[in-house]
Simulated assay, not measured.
Amino acid sequence: MGALSGAGPAGGPPVGDAVWMRVEEVSAAAGARRRATVLAERLGFGGERLGQIQLAATEMATNLIKHARQGEMMARIARNGGSAELELLSIDRGPGMADVRGSRVDGRSTSGTLGIGLGAIDRLADRIGLHSLPGHGTVMFARFHQPGGVIAPEPPYCGLTRAIDGETECGDAYVARVEDGVVYAMLCDGLGHGPLAARASREAVEAVERMVLPARPVEILRHVHRRLSSTRGGAVAVAAVDPAARKVRFAGLGNVAAWIVGSGRRQGMISVPGIAGAQARTFREHVYDLPAGAAVVLHSDGLTDRWDPGLQPDPSGHDPLLVAAALMRDAGVRHDDRCVVAVAPRDGR
């Protein structure tokens, strides 16, 4: 396992930097194109490159409309330290694909249509990721580097947030940092939802962003607990993932789920009851083995814990965004704010 390079804090996008949309009717393709254009222009894309992003967004939406069921897309500005990218993500519960590699070649289709969509996206994007299972569905992303910006190495973590229907702010948030080869990830589920829950989660994120590392997860959790005392509080989980030592240190308070996932299996990590910022009788830290190729996944209770690890992308061979997106699709069935963060260090990262 190669050493992980340092990286600045990265977390969920602020309001306005991400948009989720249902893609189930023909008219949705135009909406996806418009929303991707707005975000791309904010990053300085223009001319031919902007047109390529518009084409990729249209093709991604069209694929969902033609081939999928319950198709959704997300467009967002993803920032990592001094670098920024536009990300397009699609998820569905459609028929899936048996030949993922072949599906990315122009002219290949499983439905009798002209199979140019995935091939076009593959050519246009700076990076693409795809995971699909027959009968279960597909998750796919395309990334476009900000023009003139710094192209940083892909971080070994990624997260997704989604507000409950009817709210513009998500009450869940996450942040991840890499220090001395260790990935520190924190997820906060603000109590309730809406602006007050979002304020609590932002306080938790800022506390971890400003904290001096290295530190034990239990110390980070205590620090977050103190910072949340002026808010309504929330459930908090903190993991320190050390791929060189093959260990995970974890401390959690409240109803946030934490898992070690790999090879079609999962192992839960233990949180103690309480509410960060309000009720915390005790803080405990546990140490777990990290098998080769495994990922650490944290998610709020907006996702059910009844998901099958055998149907999830293998973290040793897939981008953390695919790991997070597939879980959001399969487990994010509750009417609540949702957040999931996946830490998936791989060799050389």
Rank of each mutant, 00 (worst) to 15 (best):
G2H: 05
A7V: 14
P9A: 12
P9K: 11
G16P: 06
D17L: 01
D17N: 06
M21N: 04
M21G: 04
M21L: 14
E24N: 09
E24G: 12
E25F: 06
A29Y: 00
G31S: 07
G31Q: 09
R34I: 06
R34F: 04
R34W: 10
V38Y: 01
E41H: 05
L43A: 00
G47W: 04
I53K: 03
L55C: 05
A57T: 03
H67I: 01
G71H: 04
G71W: 02
M74V: 06
I77L: 06
E87H: 08
L89C: 09
I91A: 11
R93H: 11
P95S: 01
M97W: 13
A98S: 15
V100N: 07
R101P: 08
R104N: 12
V105R: 12
V105G: 05
D106S: 12
G107S: 02
S109R: 06
G112Y: 02
G115P: 00
G115E: 00
I116E: 12
R123V: 04
R123N: 00
D126K: 00
G129F: 05
H131G: 01
H131D: 10
G135N: 11
M140L: 14
Q146H: 03
G148S: 08
P153W: 01
L160K: 07
R162I: 07
D165H: 15
A173V: 07
Y174T: 07
R177C: 10
V178W: 03
A185L: 08
A185Y: 05
M186W: 04
M186Q: 15
D189E: 13
D189G: 10
G192I: 14
G194Y: 08
G194H: 05
A197R: 10
A197P: 04
A200G: 15
R202M: 14
A204N: 05
A204E: 08
P214S: 03
P214R: 02
P217Q: 09
P217D: 10
P217K: 09
V218C: 12
V218D: 09
L221H: 13
R222M: 13
R222S: 09
H225A: 09
H225I: 03
H225N: 11
L228C: 13
A239K: 11
A239T: 12
D242G: 03
A244L: 07
F250I: 11
A258N: 14
V261E: 15
S263I: 05
R266A: 13
I270T: 15
I275R: 15
A276W: 09
G277V: 08
A280H: 09
A280G: 15
E285I: 13
V287Y: 05
L290W: 02
P291L: 14
P291K: 12
V297F: 04
H299W: 11
D301H: 01
D301K: 12
G302C: 05
T304E: 13
W307E: 00
S316F: 04
V323A: 00
A325M: 06
A326S: 13
G332D: 04
H335N: 15
V340G: 06
V341K: 06
V341F: 04
V343Y: 03
V343H: 00
R346S: 00
D347S: 07
G348L: 03
R349W: 10
